[in-house]
Amino acid sequence: LEGKRVAVPMGTGAQYTFLQLMGYLKVDTSTMSIVDMAPAEGAAALSQGNVDMACGWGGALARMREFGNVLLTGAEKEAIGILSFDLITTTGDFAAGQPRLLADFVAVTAQANAAWNAGDRRDEMLSVIARDAGMETAVAGDTIDDFVFLSVDQLLSDAWLGGRVGTYLDGAAEFFRENGTVPEILPSYAALIDTGPLADVAGR
Rank of each mutant, 00 (worst) to 15 (best):
V70N: 05
M10F: 06
W57Y: 15
G97H: 13
R204M: 02
A79Y: 10
R204T: 10
K77V: 11
L19Y: 10
L46H: 01
T91G: 13
G81F: 13
G59I: 00
N69P: 07
L1K: 05
D104Y: 07
G13W: 03
N50Y: 09
R204Y: 07
F105W: 13
P99K: 09
M22E: 13
Y168D: 08
R5D: 09
L1A: 09
E124K: 00
L186M: 11
E41M: 04
G196T: 15
L61Q: 08
Q48T: 00
S84R: 08
V152R: 01
T181M: 07
Y168G: 02
A138Y: 06
G92D: 07
W116A: 12
L25I: 10
E41R: 04
Q20P: 05
D36V: 05
A199M: 11
V165M: 09
A191R: 13
V128E: 00
W57M: 15
T90P: 09
M32V: 07
A118K: 12
T90C: 15
D104R: 12
Y189D: 11
E41C: 01
V27A: 12
D28H: 08
S47M: 05
G11K: 05
T167A: 11
A79K: 15
I34R: 03
G11R: 00
E184S: 15
L71A: 14
E2F: 09
E178C: 07
L46D: 03
A7R: 00
N69R: 14
P197E: 10
V165Q: 03
L72M: 15
F18I: 07
D194R: 08
I34F: 02
D104K: 10
L19Q: 12
L161M: 15
T12W: 00
G163Q: 03
S30R: 08
I193Y: 14
A118V: 07
Q20N: 14
Q48H: 04
V128D: 00
A54F: 00
R164E: 09
V182Q: 06
T109R: 09
G196S: 15
I80L: 08
G23D: 15
G49P: 06
L161N: 04
G56S: 10
G49Y: 00
G162C: 08
M135K: 11
L1T: 12
F67S: 12
D52K: 06
L83F: 10
S188W: 08
L87N: 04
A112P: 06
G97T: 12
A103F: 09
G56A: 01
K26L: 12
F94A: 15
L25E: 15
D120Q: 11
T12V: 02
F94L: 15
N117V: 10
T31K: 13
M64R: 06
N179P: 02
L192A: 13
D142K: 07
A110E: 01
S127A: 13
E2S: 12
E178V: 13
E174K: 12
T137C: 03
L126Q: 03
G23W: 04
L21Q: 09
D28M: 11
S151R: 05
A45T: 00
K26Q: 14
M64A: 02
Q154M: 05
